[in-house]
């Protein structure tokens, strides 16, 4: 089955329009029990077993119907606090909880601030399946950071759709950490509808062994003076393969909008493969759009410099990867979450 399709097609022979997903997809799920919820203030609400009305999303990975019909976790988060408190949802896969199909709705009220963490963690062995949807409504003048961390084991499949809408003056930042799964597919759509709304997407990924990472970020600017900034940093070792598809679409009327997209992949093996399709689509004259993409091995001079300070090559490479990831890591204020990410990064690069 073909998933994670690009909004605009390019030549079929380039093998980037979709990812072929050949894993068997289960169709019946028992309740996923290992969900932990933390929140620092009573004002914010996290409602589980939420009954959703039918909805449509514009893109998604291609497995949205399964979520609509068979989800085994339905959660609604209402952000009401103006004091930038943490809300944390932790999904822990284990031998008894190997399948998660969840539907999360995040409703960020006007003028509020929040810091939301969603963590998919698997410390046990066993092949797990995750298909999730996170829908975000960022209302006027709100400020939010949503950090999504995938730490599933290397046998599992991770499929995640994120669909966000930003109203006037809202500022939304995504931190996306994609370290887990044999196959990890992420689709993120952001609709910058409101005037002067801003969306920053910071994303890091790490691939090893035969892992496949497929990333598809789509940003549509409708509102005037909107701003979208996509920064994707990654490293691949062994035979890992990454496809990055990034689209910034300036729609007619989004005057003075600004879009920037940067993707950089560090290749730590001569067998690793990086393919990228950074698209800029423009139907409005009065905008500024840039994108850049680069790939290559670790810089020899930088490696040499670090090694002259007593580090072996592997440690030096780790330091360089860490330096690349630092921008996003610095933005993760929760020390526990940050510590866990650093630990996983260290393990994966060993």
């Amino acid at each position: 089955m073909e998933l994670n399709s690009t909004p605009v097609r390019t030549c079929k022979n380039y093998n980037i329009n979709d990812i072929e997903f050949s894993e068997k997809i289960p169709n019946k799920f028992k309740k996923f029990e290992n969900l932990k919820i933390f929140k620092d203030t009573e004002k914010d609400e996290v409602i589980t077993d939420f009954k959703f009305k039918d909805f449509d999303i514009k893109y998604g990975t291609g497995l949205i119907d399964q979520i609509k019909n068979s989800s085994n976790q339905n959660i609604r988060v209402n952000v009401n606090s103006k004091t930038n408190k943490d809300i944390k949802l932790e999904f822990d896969f284990d031998e008894k909880n190997l399948e998660l199909v969840e539907n999360i709705e995040i409703n960020i009220e006007p003028e509020t601030t929040s810091n939301i963490y969603i963590i998919y963690r698997q410390r046990t062995s066993g092949k797990a399946f995750h298909n999730g949807l996170i829908r975000v409504l960022s209302k006027s003048n709100s400020k939010s950071i949503i950090t999504i961390v995938n730490l599933m084991n290397p046998e599992s499949s991770n499929v995640l759709s994120i669909d966000g809408k930003l109203e006037d003056g809202s500022k939304l930042k995504y931190n996306i950490v994609d370290f887990g799964g044999k196959t990890s597919i992420t689709n993120l759509y952001t609709n910058l509808l409101g005037k002067e709304s801003q969306n920053l997407i910071n994303s890091i990924y790490l691939g090893s062994n035969d892992e496949k990472i497929d990333i598809n970020y789509i940003a549509e600017c409708f509102g005037e003076k909107t701003k979208i900034d996509i920064d994707v940093q990654g490293a691949l070792k062994d035979n890992a393969k990454k496809s990055f598809k990034g689209t910034i679409d300036f729609k007619k009327g989004c005057k003075k909008a600004y879009g920037n997209e940067a993707e950089n992949c560090m290749l730590l093996s001569d067998k690793a493969k990086s393919i990228a399709l950074p698209m800029l689509l423009c139907s409005e004259e009065d905008v500024e759009g840039n994108h850049s993409s680069s790939s290559g091995k670790a810089n020899d001079k930088e490696l040499f410099y670090i090694m002259t300070r007593g580090f072996d090559r592997k440690s030096a490479e780790k330091l360089l990867v860490r330096a690349k990831f630092n921008n996003i890591l610095e933005g993760i204020t929760n020390k526990e979450v940050k510590g866990e990410i650093l630990y996983e990064m260290d393990q994966k690069l060993d």
Binding site: Y14, L268, S269, D270, I275, P278, H291, S293, S295, K297
Partner: peptide, 16 residues
């Protein structure tokens, strides 16, 4: 643009 890089010992950059 599609950028398909299949080995590590390269210098590749794209800007638009």
């Amino acid at each position: 643009p599609t950028n398909d890089i299949r080995t590590d010992d390269v210098e590749f950059s794209h800007e638009a």
